[in-house]
């Protein structure tokens, strides 16, 4: 029996990860290219980053995107956590199948269908499309991702602590905020991060849900990409990649530290 890595394993991992990272790496490298021709290297320069600050349209779109992502991720987290509690804690209630169907469906539904259906809904109820309709659309799919992330944590949850607190006369509402929420917090944070980046990245659904006046960064990037590859776009993309990478690594470090300190506390309690 082979234990450890065979040469084949090493090659497949290396090739696989090169395939995943090389395109992103090249994009980042060429954002520092002096030349306007994206594919000809002409020396190191940060001028395209400076040019971004001058580009008012792009800056406006970035600001809209960040606001949309912050608001929709926060609302998604609240609704998604409630949905996860519903799925895990409420057993069978009438309409549960429909509910779990509605939670899982947006995860696999093509974006074009979600976007189209929401747009038609906004038109049918005569809602002015723009900033807030993008937020509604993003909450709708964001909450489903949060629900799945939080649900997996709730399933492995030791309920003795909650029961003990209830036995000692703690009101259920307080039990949730003092015991349940702190324990599931890492998954809630991870869910928020996921909803935030999904909102940040979304092109298709936002294009359907928006109206005149609200343009998000992906929509702006998309319309420029169709005209060709430019170093400014590479610079914008590099900034977004950097932000997301830092965010993901920071979150995983925080949750890891919490996990370690919780295990330590549990060990101390046993001694």
């Amino acid at each position: 029996m082979r234990k450890g890595l065979s040469p084949f394993n090493v090659v497949s991992i290396t090739v696989g990860f090169l395939f995943l990272y090389l395109p992103i790496l090249l994009l980042v490298i060429y954002s520092f290219n002096e030349s306007r021709l994206v594919t000809v290297w002409a020396g190191f320069s940060t001028k395209w980053y400076g040019a971004l600050l001058e580009n008012q349209g792009l800056m406006d779109a970035a600001w809209v995107t960040i606001k949309v992502a912050l608001i929709s991720a926060s609302a998604s987290t609240v609704l998604g956590t409630l949905a996860a509690l519903t799925l895990v804690r409420y057993g069978r209630f009438p309409g549960r199948t429909l509910f779990s169907g509605m939670v899982y469906a947006p995860l696999v539904m093509p974006d074009v269908i979600l976007g189209l259906s929401l747009l038609l809904m906004f038109v049918a109820i005569n809602l002015d499309r723009g900033f807030w309709t993008i937020i509604i659309a993003h909450i709708t799919f964001g909450m489903c991702y949060v629900a799945v992330v939080v649900q997996s944590r709730l399933l492995s949850f030791d309920r003795d602590l909650e029961e003990a607190a209830l036995d000692l006369g703690c009101p259920p509402f307080k039990v949730f905020f003092q015991i349940t929420l702190p324990i599931i917090l890492p998954s809630v944070i991870a869910g928020w991060m996921l909803a935030f980046t999904l909102s940040l990245d979304d092109l298709v659904i936002a294009s359907f849900a928006t109206g005149p006046g609200a343009t998000t960064l992906p929509m702006k990037i998309y319309s420029q990409v169709r005209l060709g590859v430019t170093p400014e776009i590479n610079a914008v993309c590099t900034i977004l990649i950097a932000l997301v990478t830092i965010g993901v690594i920071a979150t995983s470090l925080i949750t890891k530290r919490q996990e370690v300190s919780r295990q330590r506390a549990a060990q101390m309690a046993e001694q």
């Binding site: 995943l20 990272y21 992103i24 594919t39 990245d201 092109l203 993901v248």
Partner: peptide, 25 residues
């Protein structure tokens, strides 16, 4: 390694597709 697989998933879909335009054209 798992983290390295997940990381590109967090990066914008649009950006990752865009990166290939510069490579393939």
């Amino acid at each position: 390694l798992v983290m390295l697989v997940i990381l590109p998933f967090w990066t914008s879909f649009l950006i990752r597709v865009y990166a290939w335009i510069g490579i393939l054209k």
